[in-house]
Amino acid sequence: MSQDLLKTPLHALHVEMGAKMVPFAGYDMPVQYALGVRKEHIHCREQAGLFDVSHMGQLKLHGPNAAKAIEALVPVDIVDLPQGKQRYALFTNEQGGLMDDLMVTNFGDHLFVVVNAACKEQDIAHLRANLPEDVELEEIEDRALLALQGPKAAAVLSTLNPTVAEMVFMDAAVIELAGIECLVSRSGYTGEDGYEISVPAEKAEEFARRLLLKEEVEWIGLGARDSLRLECGLCLYGHDIDTTTTPVEASLLWAISKPRRADGERAGGFPGADIILDQIATKDVSRKRIGLIGSSKAPVREGAKLFDADDNEVGIVTSGTFGPTKGQPVAMGYVKTELAVIGTEVFAEVRGKKLPMTVEKMPFVPQRYYRG
């Protein structure tokens, strides 16, 4: 099995560091290290965690019409994305469903796009099928991707180049770090301040070891990455959002640029726009994504059915775990729209028992992105 799995440029270093490796999106990936998931989670919240996210797809779009071309596939503005800025986007299909979520960065001479590992091949095919001939899609195979996250991340990375401290959330730049030319954005998937760093594959291990020399930095695996993002209310593609989910059902209206959903010449213009804009206008959806807090200590996992007080099935949990920072079970899922109200009590079925949970506003712990 493991022989068939792909390996990131940092695979040997994970093994050397004693990581427990598991299959994930076709890659052999570290789920945890010697610290364990809970301590890794807390370390990232308190200091700085280093994540290998090289399994993600890194792409470049070249050509003067690149922004216009990708804007036709997503419900966010890309044409007016300033140079040195990054934006969260969604690929939608003709039914208004979500094909993937992604990050788009304007580096001036090209757009840099990062897509989810499990959707990489599908997204590349989608782009190739829809981009005009004057836009070139380049698949980046020779770069690793690292994330340095946590309240000490800026101080740590500033020792390699102080200019990173001047960046704010969603800034991006080509920056030399430890003598290596890197593509750096001040962003991440933990809710903490931090950076995502694209580094040449042959320099990735050297760069990671340099960061790990700092006492504030520890490797963080997929286990803590999941609990960190869930506490901060961030969706995991393929679980909390997928092709059967619209942005309105997924409570992702903030990810649709206002000009694309208002009356005007820029409204719509993306796959499934008619369906999505109608849902926005009528508020007519049968279910909504919500956050849930458990009152017991037992975590409620993905797939748990949700019931109302009269024992009617009303929804399902799409992500769930015990939140080490929150100190309570946290989950997200979908319920009937009328129940998607803060304070509503529902019951999750876990091993034959109905555990009470309360609909709560997300994020469950404050996001601490650095906005200047």
Score class of each variant (00 low, 15 high):
Pro271Leu: 04
Ser257Cys: 13
His239Lys: 14
Glu205Cys: 02
Lys203Phe: 05
Tyr237Phe: 15
Trp254Glu: 06
Tyr237Val: 15
Ala208Trp: 03
Ala201His: 04
Glu192Pro: 07
Glu206Tyr: 07
Gly272Ala: 06
Leu230Phe: 05
Gly269Asn: 07
Pro259Glu: 10
Gly268His: 06
Phe207Ile: 05
Gly269Met: 03
Lys258Gly: 09
Asp193Gln: 06
Ser257Gly: 14
Ala267Thr: 12
Gly238Ala: 09
Glu206Gly: 06
Cys232Val: 08
Asp274Val: 13
Leu213Val: 11
Glu265Pro: 13
Glu215Gly: 10
Arg266Gln: 14
Ala267Leu: 02
Gly272Thr: 06
Phe207His: 02
Leu236Tyr: 09
Glu231Pro: 01
Trp219Thr: 02
Ala262Gln: 14
Arg209Phe: 11
Glu196Gln: 13
Thr246Trp: 02
Tyr237His: 15
Arg260Ala: 06
Ile197Tyr: 00
Tyr195Leu: 03
Lys214Ser: 12
Arg229Asn: 14
Leu213Phe: 15
Thr243Tyr: 07
Ala262Tyr: 12
Glu215Met: 10
Gly221Asp: 05
Asp242Thr: 12
Arg209Thr: 09
Ile220Leu: 08
Arg209Val: 08
Leu236His: 12
Val248His: 02
Ala224Cys: 06
Ser251Glu: 07
Ser198Phe: 03
Ser257Val: 07
Pro271Met: 06
Arg229His: 14
Ile256Pro: 00
Thr243Val: 13
Glu205Arg: 10
Val248Cys: 01
Arg260Pro: 00
Gly238Met: 05
Glu215His: 13
Leu253Gly: 12
Leu253Met: 14
Pro247Ala: 12
Glu192Ile: 03
Leu211Asp: 05
Ile220Gln: 07
Trp219Tyr: 10
Trp254Leu: 08
Cys232Lys: 12
Ala262Val: 06
Gly221Arg: 01
Leu236Val: 13
Gly194His: 00
Gly264Phe: 03
Glu218Lys: 15
Asp226Trp: 11
Ala267Tyr: 04
Asp226Asn: 14
Pro200Asn: 11
Glu192Leu: 03
Lys203Glu: 13
Ala224Ser: 13
